[in-house]
């Protein structure tokens, strides 16, 4: 049990590092990557928490987070590709 608590603490350290990159991140790609990594770390934290509290149904919600994270990242990147802000591919007539 102490092992899982140690794992959770290590994951929280990683989350703080990712949040630093998210807050500071100079470019938008840093932020997209930080959000994606944050979602993955949340999945891992929830799985570890499920074993700390001995409730395996945490794994279900961790799986849902993984799916939402994947779909969200795809949506963000597709937004980059097709409706860019002008950095990736300038669109002359954006209404």
């Amino acid at each position: 049990m102490a092992m899982f608590l140690a794992i959770t603490a290590a994951l929280f350290v990683a989350i703080v590092l990712v949040l630093v990159r998210l807050f500071a991140g100079p470019t938008l790609y840093d932020r997209v990557l930080a959000v994606n990594t944050f979602g993955t770390l949340t999945v891992l934290v929830l799985s570890a928490l499920g074993f700390v509290t001995e409730r395996p149904d945490f794994l279900d919600i961790a799986m849902l987070y993984a799916l939402v994270n994947f779909v969200g990242t795809i949506a963000i990147l597709k937004f980059f590709r097709y409706r860019s802000f002008g950095r990736i591919r300038p669109e002359p007539e954006e209404r």
């Binding site: 949040l19 998210l22 938008l28 932020r31 997209v32 959000v35 944050f38 949340t42 963000i76 802000f85």
Partner: peptide
């Protein structure tokens, strides 16, 4: 930057879900 705000609010939702 509103794009960064959209990203941050997604993270906010994930944190509150946790």
């Amino acid at each position: 930057n509103l794009f960064a705000v959209a990203m941050l609010s997604g993270v906010f939702s994930l944190l509150s879900a946790g």
